[in-house]
């Protein structure tokens, strides 16, 4: 029986009150509730405050480059299908620097649990707009306000038929842990966009701001209904839905590879006899 404590307690470089603490707690709870031991789990991250998460719990970790966590996670998942691969990074990493990788990962439907710590701001670089910053938000880099329309990751993920698309909130830890657990159980790409207040730099989207708007989806929403999911994915204003927006049973990317049905590639010997047969084709 795995417990949250198995994942350890570490000192962090996060600001007091940061939404990351709630996400970290929910992640540990979900991993424990899924009965996954630390050595079975690989956390892959990019760069940013959110991307430091793998350093703050016991797990295998590949802390790579800004924006590149999804390709690295895809490679690892294709090398060892027995690893439970979880990706954890921020909105800048996934939706900005790694935008092309985000689109490609949704389309591939790689069996990954992707947690996006979406605080609608760049925290580690001290407060510039992110792809999800709301229009008009003022920052030192956008003194006249943000001019670009905000990126809608949930709508994009639903439109690409990602395996599971959900929205969580760092202020609702138990609910979020439940979503992450669903993501871990889903065979395919599970995107969990997590609303997360940045207490240091985002003075607009605060705990109070989110608290007044979020509500939990009930049984009235059917995540299997793609059109309803698309419609719901555009609800982001006075009310913001939390929960599973969309889910399908598309084949996970890994399941297309017959070679992965035989387990980790590192356990499969190189067969020079077969290569000798291959060479016959070149005579």
């Amino acid at each position: 029986m795995v417990t949250s404590e198995d994942y350890g307690q570490f000192e962090t470089a996060w600001c007091p009150g940061c939404g990351n603490f709630g996400i970290l707690k929910a992640l540990k709870q979900a991993l424990a509730a899924s009965d996954l031991a630390p050595n079975q789990v690989l956390l892959v991250s990019g760069i940013g405050q959110a991307a430091k998460t793998p350093h703050y719990l016991r797990c295998n970790c590949f802390n790579g480059l800004h924006g590149r966590s999804l390709p690295a996670a895809t490679g690892a998942a294709l090398a060892n299908p027995e690893l439970k691969v979880v990706v954890t990074s921020g909105d800048g990493c996934h939706y900005g620097e790694g935008g092309n990788h985000f689109l490609a990962a949704l389309r591939r439907n790689v069996d990954l649990t992707v947690l996006v710590h979406d605080n609608q701001i760049y925290g580690l670089t001290k407060g510039q707009a992110s792809p999800t910053s709301l229009e008009g938000m003022h920052t030192k880099a956008q003194p006249d306000g943000v001019h670009s329309y905000p990126f809608n990751p949930v709508a994009v993920a639903v439109s690409c038929h990602a395996g599971l698309v959900a929205r969580g909130y760092a202020g609702e830890v138990e609910h979020l842990a439940g979503l992450i657990q669903l993501g871990l159980a889903h065979r395919g790409l599970a995107l969990i966009d997590i609303l997360q207040p940045c207490v240091s730099f985002n003075k607009l989207n605060t705990y109070q701001w989110y608290g007044q708007r979020v509500y939990k989806l009930g049984a009235e929403h059917d995540p299997g209904d793609w059109e309803a999911a698309i419609k719901l994915s555009y609800e982001f204003g006075e009310r913001i839905p939390l929960g599973v927006i969309y889910e399908n049973q598309r084949l996970a990317f890994q399941d297309h590879y017959s070679v992965l049905q035989k387990g980790p590639l590192a356990r499969q010997a190189v067969d020079h006899g077969i290569l000798a047969q291959v060479m016959e084709g070149f005579f």
Partner: peptide, 20 residues
């Protein structure tokens, strides 16, 4: 076939880290 060369090299690194 990756979406770009950034992805290709990072996929290779993820795979190599995991033993391929």
């Amino acid at each position: 076939q990756a979406e770009d060369e950034l992805a290709a090299v990072n996929m290779a690194l993820g795979a190599a880290y995991a033993g391929a």
